[in-house]
Nucleic acid binder design. Structure first.
Lengths: 337, 337
DNA sequence: GTGAAAGCGCTAACAT
DNA sequence: ATGTTAGCGCTTTCAC
């Protein structure tokens, strides 16, 4: 193991000089610099990041907390985070929480202890008070995808509006009985998407039929049964608005397996625009979220927060960034007369 | 910031005693232990992992290197790795290399310096000599998905056999003109899949037609054009064997867009069994890789290597584990008469 | 059983 | 322009 000290001895200088050269600091004679660099080369020295981090009090490492990287939204967000982090010299630790608050707490407990500079949290739950506490303790935190209140920086989309516009589109294209495949209402993003759905119906003078609201019971796959039950029931929808693309996929499967055609009998519309949506049969009409940009911006904001903290500045007031969504019209929806 | 020292002072003992209590070591009077624990509680102390790591020479952190987490294989592998790592008290750093050897090198250079205990590499390229060097330097490394030679521990599948069996299935079910959508041959896994394809044809007395071999030019999407060109040409296949599921998805899209039916006109068969395969239209016949298990086993092996190293034992001879694959028959293939 | 002290490898005043 | 030195917070002999 080559250390700074050995390099210093080898080059016949002090450790501080070597440290200066490594850090690219000024005030080193060119000749000395060359001698040190030669020593570094010959001993193939590379600095111990750990020792440095211990000394300077940060690690250039951030943690990304996601419900599960297997949810197809998050690989894209993750790339946004990682690319941005790498560009700024940061490394990313990946944490899957499986929506389990205990796992989340455990990760925070473990990582907070001075070896993570900040957190990007995609897995925020309404009762994630430990995350609020983290922020309150002055630890850099940025939320994305989900958020609750303005006390923490966040990067999100306008879920209400996304749903409102999606459902309005269905109404304008002639649909009268629009069902919704609704995610867990505890998550505010689904609550908001529900409200967008309800208000769109209301504003266009369509009645709200409780029987058309499918509430997630046991994970995304539960919509398979829920959809089939709906189709077996008294009131058959002419469109289903799925509150996420993975849900739409399950809904589509269920509809086909019951022998209905998409979009001729029933239109399906999702939210997310995950890669797969374009390759389904039929390709899915959906509302695209700028997932990569969300990750990238969240990382950028987090790094800014960390920089502030390093300069011992007061953290700026939290900002919630709302990114634009876009309705992507494909073949899973059709005009009704 | 509460440190060990403060806890010691508060409890009126030495730092070594506190350290012993924290580490759960014996030789501490019960009464003292209680006093220390109380101090820990009241000062809400939690140890600085960084300082500990610097001292003991390891971090309980491993790095996972993947081509891209957006390739749908890798989220599953990643979960296998992360779940296993967490169970053993390890944290995972995620590195996307985009098949770029410079990015890979940069990550290794940065992480190797004593703050990563080991690497799991899914992105190995034939000329990734820096990874061989890593291993040769005594650094714990496990490959998965790809490997080159037996000098490094690895967890893989039998790519030759997977392809051989897949193509044999197509032949047995009556297909005569089987095309292949072949990934970059530099990657041995695709070379092996090609050989499995060729040998299956040979062993069943079918001729090899170069025109039926589509070589990846510019990423997975290049198979869209390649497939369409093939379908426009003189020799129309009755089946296409795609050497990965993402390729199969693109191939299916191209076939449909050219107006052929699957499986009536052309059968399609993939390899991977990513989640999406079951939801395509038609659901994809494919060879499943135990992706989660590969990740989990790779992590387990790596942690074993790390444990060995910690005990300053010689590393055991590398073992290449070959996991079982399984042909999953769905609706994208049909019997020909 | 418990404490004193050395030191992991590095950085950053402070001196010179 | 360069060197000296005091730690960062922890573990771990070695003494007592």
């Amino acid at each position: 193991m080559t250390t700074l000290k050995k390099v210093a001895e080898y080059a016949g200088v002090s450790t501080s000089t070597v440290s200066r050269v490594i850090a690219g600091k000024p005030y080193v004679k060119e000749e000395t610099r060359q001698r040190v660099l030669k020593a570094v080369q010959e001993l193939s020295y590379s600095p111990n990041i750990l020792a440095k981090s211990l000394k300077v009090g940060r690690t250039n490492t951030i943690a990304l907390m996601v419900p599960s990287i297997q949810n197809q939204m998050f690989p894209i967000v993750t790339r946004g985070v990682e690319d941005t982090a790498r560009k700024h010299g940061y490394t990313v630790i990946l944490c899957n929480t499986d929506e389990n608050i205990e796992v989340e707490k455990e990760y925070i407990r473990k990582l907070q202890n001075r070896w993570i500079d900040g957190f990007i949290v995609c897995s925020m739950l309404p009762d994630s008070d430990h995350i609020r506490k983290l922020k309150a303790d002055g630890f850099p935190v940025v939320l994305t995808s989900r958020y609750y209140g303005d006390s923490i920086d966040a990067v999100i989309i306008d879920n209400y509006r996304a749903a409102y516009e999606a459902v309005s589109y269905l109404i304008i294209t002639g649909h009268k009985k629009i069902a919704i495949a609704l995610g867990r209402r505890q998550l505010s993003l689904y609550q908001q998407r529900l409200e967008g759905y309800l208000d769109a119906l209301k504003d266009h003078g369509l009645p709200i039929d409780e029987r058309l609201i499918m509430n997630e019971t046991n994970g995304t796959n539960s919509f398979y049964e829920l959809t089939q039950k709906l189709l077996d029931g008294p009131v058959i929808p002419d469109a289903i608005f799925a509150t996420s693309d993975p849900k739409a996929i399950v809904v589509v499967r269920a509809i086909k397996d019951r022998g209905f055609r998409i979009p001729e009998d029933i239109s399906v519309l999702g939210i997310d625009n995950i890669e797969m949506s374009a390759f389904m049969e039929p390709p899915l009409t959906t509302v695209s979220q700028p997932l990569y940009e969300m990750g990238a911006l969240a990382a950028k904001k987090l790094i800014d927060l960390i920089d502030h903290k390093n300069k011992s500045e007061e953290p700026p007031a939290p900002v919630v960034d709302v990114l634009e969504t876009e309705l992507i019209i494909r073949k899973s929806t059709a005009r009704r007369k």
